[in-house]
Amino acid sequence: MEQDIIRVAQAIERAERILVITGAGLSADSGLPTYRGLGGLYNGVTAEGLPIEAALSGPMLRRDPALCWKYLAELGKACLGARANAGHAAIAELQRRKPGCWVLTQNIDGYHRQAGSPLERLIEIHGQLAPLYCQSCGAEDPELAAHLQRPLPPRCAQCGGILRPPVVLFEEMLPEQAIGKLYEEVRKGFEVVLAVGTTASFPYIVEPLLQARRNGGFTAEINPATTDLSGWVDAHIMQGSLDVLPELLSHISRH
């Protein structure tokens, strides 16, 4: 395990362009339940007898905003109730040491921002939970925490319209700007791609990793479990990111 950490560190040390892909496993170490384990929220059906994917969907937000917000509020409370951890901090520090290091995250908790990752090299592919904005007039509302204490769905102070977070719900498109930026950077190529705490097999997660392999780059995964990505990577460190990332950083020089 130690040898693998050193191998990954050496590859990062030599590289200029690095992509760190993060998923729910990274934020689980903050005490945030992983996507499928959010208070049992994603296991089976909701109290209304719906699959959670239907309750947390774009069509449901339009059709029954109170029901959709019931579950958005669960996500909001979970994210606001935890903080960025040492893994997020290690990634932000890596980005300081390596100006060609990018982060692609599926997480919507905002912890990479909180930890100090530079926004110009952070791609939040599924959006984030704040600030809310009005679906009718577009006004922004920064008071997510306050709205979660009030009757739902939250309403716009300007026009009374229903507020929503800038997050990608089920059955919605990925944000054009984020996906455009990702593929622009992927076209330039990455010498090292590191997947942290993600089980995802979405094309936009797998493709950067496969392309790095095709171009002779180095690929690695940090995940205590075996995933769809595990068979593709040069190194799989089967430990939690909270243990591995700070240690990995200790082997990378401060330029």
Rank of each mutant, 00 (worst) to 15 (best):
E2D: 13
E2H: 13
Q3M: 09
D4H: 12
I5G: 00
I6R: 15
I6T: 12
V8N: 05
V8D: 05
A11T: 04
A15R: 03
V20A: 08
G23H: 01
G25T: 07
S27E: 11
D29L: 01
G31Q: 02
G31Y: 04
P33K: 04
R36F: 10
L38P: 03
G39W: 01
G39N: 01
G39P: 01
G40C: 01
L41K: 00
G44I: 11
V45H: 13
A47M: 01
A47T: 07
A47L: 03
G49M: 07
E53K: 09
L56F: 00
S57C: 09
G58S: 08
G58H: 08
P59L: 01
M60W: 04
R62P: 00
R62E: 15
R63D: 14
R63W: 12
A66W: 02
C68M: 12
K70M: 08
L72I: 14
A73T: 05
E74Q: 13
K77I: 11
K77S: 01
A78P: 04
L80D: 02
G81W: 12
G81Q: 09
A86F: 01
A86E: 15
H88M: 05
H88V: 02
A89Q: 14
A92H: 00
E93G: 03
G100H: 01
C101G: 02
V103L: 12
L104F: 12
T105M: 04
Q106W: 06
Q106D: 09
Q106S: 11
I108D: 10
D109V: 11
G116P: 12
G116Q: 08
L122C: 04
G127A: 06
Q128M: 10
L129N: 07
L129H: 08
A130K: 07
C134N: 00
Q135S: 13
E140Q: 13
D141S: 11
P142D: 03
P142W: 01
H147F: 11
Q149E: 15
P151E: 15
P153N: 14
R155G: 03
C156V: 07
C159P: 01
C159Y: 01
G160M: 06
G161Q: 06
G161R: 03
I162N: 07
P166Y: 14
V167M: 15
F170K: 13
M173Q: 14
A178I: 04
A178M: 14
I179W: 15
L182H: 11
Y183P: 12
E184H: 14
E185D: 05
E185V: 05
G189L: 14
E191Q: 15
L194N: 05
L194T: 04
S201T: 14
S201K: 10
F202E: 15
P203G: 13
I205C: 11
I205D: 04
V206P: 03
E207V: 04
L209Q: 10
A212W: 08
R213F: 06
R214G: 03
R214V: 09
R214E: 14
F218K: 07
T219S: 14
A220L: 06
A220N: 09
I222T: 11
D228F: 08
L229R: 10
S230N: 10
V233C: 09
A235R: 15
H236I: 05
Q239N: 03
S241D: 08
S241K: 01
L242P: 00
L242T: 05
L245I: 06
E247I: 09
L248T: 05
L248W: 03
L249K: 06
H251C: 08
I252N: 02
S253W: 02
R254N: 02
